[in-house]
Computed example of a mutant assay.
Amino acid sequence: MSNLSAVGDRDSWRCWLCDEPVDPHASVNSDRGPSVDGGGAKPKKAATVTERLAHRACNTRKGAVRPVVPWSPQLFVVDPAPIVATVERLRRKGGREVVARCPSRTDADEGAAWLLDRLSRFAPDLAVTTQVESAGGQFLLVLRSV
């Protein structure tokens, strides 16, 4: 297991699950305290485990199952795709995916900016761009691997 301070510094002291700040001085026994998450179900090769910073409560709630990374409640998106599954597919296959529908161009642009920012911390090794496409009175938010 890595040093908590090293993982926290690398992840800018933000929880990879909820994207909220983690207090480096909080007790590791506190719900909002720092913990190191090994990334979920055990991979076949221990060397492929990516340790990430998480609040103790977020890490405990996730357990050893695939995490759910929520979309921001401030966004107006319809049928948002699960972020974790989308990232996994883009890593495996590349290409593009429609990740949400939005009622206006402004909503889609806000969603695109938020998603790029969130993925820069959640999946920093995945190079992606966003695109907004007009489609029959709505706007599609598209994520494309680079």
Rank of each mutant, 00 (worst) to 15 (best):
R121W: 14
P82Y: 00
D11C: 10
R14A: 12
R96H: 12
A6P: 06
T50D: 08
T130M: 03
Q74S: 14
A47V: 03
R144K: 13
R91I: 06
D109Y: 08
Q74T: 12
P67R: 13
G38S: 07
F122S: 13
V49W: 05
K93H: 00
K45Y: 14
A6F: 15
R144D: 06
G136D: 07
R144P: 01
V77D: 01
P103T: 02
A6S: 05
D37W: 15
D125L: 10
S104Q: 12
V36L: 02
L4K: 06
N59S: 11
N3I: 02
S145W: 01
P70S: 08
H25D: 12
F139A: 02
C102I: 07
L115C: 02
L143K: 00
P34T: 10
T129L: 13
E133P: 10
Q74R: 12
F122V: 15
R52C: 07
C15W: 00
L75N: 02
L141Q: 01
G63F: 15
R105M: 14
L90F: 06
D23I: 13
P73D: 13
P43G: 03
R66L: 11
P21T: 04
R14H: 14
T130D: 08
T129N: 09
P43T: 02
G8L: 08
C102S: 02
A81H: 05
V146E: 06
R118W: 15
V99W: 03
D37V: 10
S145A: 13
S30R: 14
E97I: 01
Q74G: 12
V49D: 00
A123M: 11
L115Q: 00
R92P: 02
V99Q: 00
K45G: 08
T60W: 10
R89N: 05
V128H: 08
P80E: 03
D23G: 13
P43V: 05
V65Q: 14
V28L: 05
H25P: 01
T86M: 12
Q74F: 10
A81F: 08
P43Y: 08
R52I: 08
S134F: 08
E51S: 05
G63I: 15
W71K: 06
T86D: 03
A81W: 02
A26Y: 02
Q74W: 09
R121G: 09
L143R: 00
A108T: 04
R91L: 10
V87K: 00
S2T: 13
R121C: 11
V84W: 01
V84H: 04
L116E: 09
G136C: 06
A6W: 13
P124T: 07
E20S: 06
D107F: 14
M1I: 11
V68I: 12
P70D: 07
V69D: 03
E51L: 12
P82F: 01
R121V: 11
A26M: 05
V69T: 08
L116R: 09
T106N: 01
W114D: 01
F139P: 00
E110K: 07
G40Q: 05
W16C: 05
T106S: 07
F139S: 00
R121I: 08
P124M: 10
G63A: 15
V142K: 05
R105I: 11
A64F: 15
V22A: 07
P124E: 06
K42P: 08
Q131Y: 12
A54T: 04
F122K: 04
L140D: 02
L116C: 04
